[in-house]
Design a protein around this nucleic acid. Structure first.
Length: 851
DNA sequence: CATTATGACGCT
DNA sequence: AGCGTCAT
């Protein structure tokens, strides 16, 4: 048997805001809002009836003291507002301003770093959920505890109390009332103050606990520790709640699996404390033999509690669970099955289910509201047995294997393993808004693209991988004059979601900065597309959509840009890689810093953000001491533009898009003006739209359209092989710049003579000139700017990687090497200055590309 | 612009 | 490759 844990952060976004704003989650009612609705509600607010999805002003009425915090927003030109004033109720929202969950992603990383530091097998399930497999640790702990108990038994004899822990005292005390479920017990004592540090001590000293103290221990545990779920088994539950080593080891009448799970409870308790200590966030957890049950268990007692489901109670718990609450059945599929089962016609099975439900007080299928829900137990009773699954399949008209899967699910038999993974599998930026013309679409996409690019850079820094596919999602809309129809509930083809994907455009190098708690700063270059390229490419996809779908692209209500197919870069210089990926105990997998790519000290409510602006454009400004991002982006932006292939019927010069983006990025104030023709091209809804234009028009058409896969289009995209190639170059790619130090002096001697590099296309042309020059001066040995150590120049980059790793580790795990307390913030702004070194450009490909 | 923003997956 | 579903 395995010990599987589902970890679930309590009202995560709300906790993040509480921490940031210094609010007390036990006292203050806090909610997080996105536009007019709440997307997270803390438990104080929930007590007042405030719920997720509720309009903020409605919530205010229910809970006058409610503090609603709006999520960050990002607008055109990289304008970030960290604490936006929520829109007035009913106000029209700016279609060029998107909500960003960045802050929570950063906080999430902190949590996962803490989890990973204590468990090898962590699977990210979502921004605030994870599955852990703690079998090994549990077994080890149990063994250890058993040995200790045995030793204690021999020496201390009976006075130890270990033997009494599992006596029946607790059973009698707890078994009386016939609680609804474990949560009831928890609730009863839920008001007890949090036993903090001493609580830990009390818990650890379990073996000293005499029966007298039993209740106190239990109370403590119901507050923070294990609860087992089923009321009928409360007696057992009480025993099991002795989730301490001694109890686990000493309870001879418990099965081995139960002891193992109890030990798992101890492990998880420690992990939860570690998370709390590292991040300040509380988490709830479910501990069981598989993920289905663990998931259900974690939801059972919240917040800040954990729930163990021993095998002996598993089936009882599953039986009591409403079918629709089982993962995967909450949607249409679940209701379809339910409906099929509830219909009285047809043969026996369904009728049996109906009968059962009626017996439970369910009468009218129409008035299903107050009816007791169909439980997993109902299903198991009727279809669980041999041959039952077959009837179930027939009854619901689903394949037998589907029916089998359903039955397994409701029986709580999911045996999927925990697949270790801390990384998200895709990055996306989206915005829902009514976009009536092409200019608006373009501007909106530029905002999305900027965010996406920043996140891609961040992702490469953290995980050393690059997205190779760009997906553009689009949701159509009815024209405004058809609004009434829409309101009338008319569904329309026009509102469908559609997507197109293509290779991710290859970008230019950019420098990402990380600073440690000493205020030292290190930077690394990554290669990401320019926002301009993304927008350009995405527009191509929309055109493809227009020409293939038979539906207009305009107007639309939603655009999403998604970076997928994240390819690992080869492990070139090992140090950073190992820092981020392989984990020595106690170190981190990811950097925390809720602020990821941004400067931590940015507190002002409104300002232009450094990132992309600094990234791609803007004249060199005076860099603020630590983080202010500046740059001579000119070379960069020029190069970036140059990289944009001249496809596109766009006449000469940069197309409207390139122009627009260039403008936004450089000094020009206003985003590009709309392009009227383009507007009509997409209009689609009027007769001749883009489709004809695209097809018949110039053969060139859209460089990113269907043709993108052949011919020159390809030179503009990242190929996995190129990734490896590049990365193998190691030093050539990554450069560390420690702030206040001269530009990285490293020169790769191979640079000049190396084979023509296939991916050279995107490299800025001149920027590195001076840097290279200075560096090339001194030949063989270099001194590390950080520690002064001398070494061959080629080794310096890796050596500095090591420094970065140490900085980051110190930053996020101050205990491990230094002293400072965890510093907020994380990786900060993207720095345009100081291009490390240029790749030797010129390859056949590039020349071909330049044409 | 009517859960919003983000994800993951399974079925073609 | 594109769509639909599910979840939070």
């Amino acid at each position: 048997m395995r010990v599987i844990v589902h970890v679930d952060l309590d009202c995560f976004y709300a906790q993040v805001e509480q921490r940031r704003l210094g609010l007390d989650g036990d006292v203050d009612a806090v909610a997080v809002q996105q536009w007019s609705n709440l997307i997270a509600v803390n438990y104080v607010a929930r007590r007042h009836g405030v719920k997720r999805g509720m309009p903020a002003h409605e919530a205010q009425k229910l809970c006058p003291g409610l503090r609603c915090v709006h999520v960050e927003t990002i607008g055109e030109g990289g304008v970030v507002v960290e604490d936006p004033t929520p829109p007035a109720p009913g106000a029209t929202r700016d279609p060029m301003v998107k909500a960003s969950l960045r802050r929570y992603r950063g906080a999430s990383r902190e949590v996962f770093a803490a989890l990973a530091a204590h468990c090898d097998l962590v699977e990210r399930a979502s921004i605030d959920e994870a599955f852990l497999d703690v079998t090994a640790q549990s077994a080890a702990l149990l063994k250890e505890a058993q040995a200790a108990a045995a030793a204690a038994g021999r020496s201390a004899g009976h006075g130890d109390g270990v033997g009494e822990v599992h006596s029946n005292d607790g059973r009698e005390e707890e078994g009386t009332g016939g609680h609804e479920d474990g949560a009831g017990v928890a609730g009863a004592s839920g008001d007890a103050p949090d036993p903090d540090g001493e609580g830990v001590a009390a818990g650890q000293q379990q073996h000293q606990c005499k029966p007298k103290d039993y209740r106190r221990e239990l109370d403590f545990r119901t507050q923070r520790h294990s609860q087992v779920v089923d009321a009928e088994h409360d007696a057992t539950a009480t025993e099991l709640s002795q989730s301490q080593e001694a109890a686990a080891a000493a309870a001879p009448e418990l099965t081995e699996s139960a002891r193992l799970l109890l030990a798992g409870g101890v492990v998880v308790d420690r992990i939860r404390r570690a998370v709390r200590e590292a991040t300040g966030f509380t988490v709830s957890a479910g501990i069981a033999a598989n993920r289905v049950v663990a998931k259900l268990a974690s939801a059972r007692n919240k917040p800040n509690k954990q729930t163990i489901v021993p095998l002996s109670l598993q089936s009882a718990m599953m039986r009591s669970i409403p079918f629709r609450e089982v993962r995967g059945f909450g949607g249409k599929y679940g209701s379809a099955l339910e409906a099929a089962l509830s219909a009285k016609d047809g043969d026996g099975g369904g009728a049996d289910v109906v009968t059962r439900r009626v017996r439970n007080g369910w009468h009218d299928p129409k008035a299903a509201d107050d009816a007791p829900p169909l439980t997993c137990g109902d299903l198991l009773d009727v279809f669980g047995g041999t041959d039952g699954t077959k009837r179930f399949a027939q009854r619901c008209s689903i394949p037998l294997d589907a029916a089998t899967a359903v039955m397994r699910s409701v029986a709580g038999e999911g045996m999927d393993e925990v697949k270790p993974n801390l990384k998200p599998k895709s990055l996306s930026a989206c915005k829902s808004a009514y976009l009536g013309d092409a200019a608006m679409v373009r501007r909106c996409m530029a905002v999305l693209a900027e965010e996406l690019v920043e996140r891609m850079a961040e992702d490469e820094l953290l995980w050393r991988r690059r997205a190779t596919t760009l997906v553009v999602h689009h949701r159509g809309a009815l024209k405004k004059d058809h609004l009434s129809k829409w309101k009338a509930g008319k569904t329309s083809e026009l509102t469908r979601d559609r997507n197109r994907q293509c290779r991710m455009p290859l970008g230019a190098e950019a420098t990402v900065e990380a600073s440690n708690s000493q205020g030292e700063t290190a930077r690394k270059t990554v290669r990401v597309p320019t926002p301009g390229q993304i927008v350009e490419t995405a527009e191509g996809m929309l055109r493809k959509l227009a020409s293939s779908g038979g539906l207009p692209v305009l107007p639309c209500t939603r655009i999403a840009l998604c970076a997928t197919d994240l390819q690992d870069l080869e492990t070139g210089s090992a140090s950073l890689t190992s820092f981020f990926q392989a984990q020595p105990k106690g170190s981190v997998n990811s950097s925390g810093g809720g602020t990821s790519l941004r400067s931590p000290q940015r507190k002002r409510p409104k300002r232009k953000r450094g990132t992309l602006e600094g990234f791609f454009g803007g004249a060199a400004k005076k860099p603020a001491p630590t983080t202010e991002v500046v740059g001579e982006a000119h070379t960069t932006i020029e190069d970036a533009k140059a990289e944009i292939p001249r496809a596109e019927g766009e006449g000469q010069g940069a197309g409207p898009l390139a122009g627009s983006f260039g403008a936004a990025v450089t000094e020009e104030p206003a985003p590009a003006p709309a392009s009227p023709q383009r507007n009509e091209m997409w209009g689609g809804d009027e007769e001749t739209d883009i489709r004809s234009a695209e097809r018949e028009g110039d053969g060139v058409g859209d460089g990113h359209g269907e043709e993108v896969e052949e011919g020159q289009g390809q030179d503009n995209v990242i190929a996995p092989s190129e990734l490896e190639d590049k990365d193998r170059q190691g030093q050539g790619v990554y450069v560390l710049v420690v702030e206040d130090e001269p530009p990285d002096p490293v020169v790769d001697s191979t640079d000049a003579e190396v084979e023509p590099e296939p991916e050279a296309a995107g490299a800025p042309a001149q920027a590195p000139a001076e840097a290279t020059a200075t560096t090339s001066l001194d030949g063989g040995m270099k001194a590390c700017p950080r520690c002064g150590q001398e070494m061959p120049a080629e080794e310096l980059p890796e050596h500095e990687d090591w420094h970065v790793a140490m900085d980051l580790q110190e930053r996020f795990h101050p205990g491990s090497s230094g002293s400072a307390r965890r510093a907020p913030g994380g990786l900060s702004g993207i720095q345009p200055r100081q291009w490390s070194k240029q790749r030797a450009p010129q390859s056949k490909i590039q020349s071909f590309f330049k044409r």
